[in-house]
């Protein structure tokens, strides 16, 4: 099946219902995309599908036919976000980092601090406490010539505690199902 992977046209044989996550890791040899929960809650498997952030654990391979997939490998290792995550302590164990960076890549160029928090609300980090991540994104945006915004504490009362907000977002689905 043909699709674009990190800018190149590729042809990969894999079952249509196999998860995009497994096709990337097992059939394409791209193990940068991680599996955390396997149920759409943690964001570790975030990749871009036609430029939009999606959870690769919930995407059937058959649905990427003729579409464009971008993974962390597609950033090439020298992307300003990658450098900033290292410099600002935006990564510790690293399990969430590829997904976190891909979610950050998908943010609009002029995203406000609140929009950045909202855009990352589907990505859970158990290590950093999120502040290093927000610092890294602010720094990368400056490096790319974006507005020099800080994404610090208290930008909005409901979003003041990133850890809580993350858990709120990730746990709310379970009710009544």
């Amino acid at each position: 099946m043909r699709f674009r992977l990190n800018g190149k046209q590729v042809d990969v044989e894999a079952p249509a219902m196999k998860r995009l996550l497994d096709v990337l890791r097992e059939d394409c040899g791209l193990t940068g995309t991680k599996e955390g929960c396997g149920e759409g809650e943690c964001g570790a498997c975030t990749v871009l599908l036609d430029g939009q952030a999606v959870n690769a654990c919930l995407v059937p391979f058959g649905q990427v036919r003729r579409r464009a997939v971008k993974t962390i490998e597609g950033l090439g290792g020298r992307h300003p976000l990658q450098a900033a995550f290292v410099a600002e302590g935006g990564t510790q164990c690293g399990a969430c980092t590829p997904g976190m960076i891909m979610a950050a890549v998908a943010l609009p160029k002029d995203a406000t601090p609140d929009q950045i928090r909202e855009g990352l609300a589907g990505n859970i980090c158990r290590c950093t406490g999120y502040e290093g991540i927000y610092r890294a994104i602010a720094k990368a945006r400056q490096a790319e010539g974006g507005p020099p915004r800080t994404v610090g504490r208290g930008s909005r009362s409901t979003a003041g505690k990133p850890g809580r907000r993350q858990r709120t977002k990730s746990s709310k689905r379970r009710t009544g199902r």
């Binding site: 759409g40 975030t46 599908l49 952030a53 959870n55 995407v59 979610a103 589907g122 990505n123 977002k169």
Partner: peptide, 9 residues
């Protein structure tokens, strides 16, 4: 509805 990744799908 969920987070951005879910809303996109």
């Amino acid at each position: 509805v969920g987070a951005v990744q879910v809303q996109n799908r």
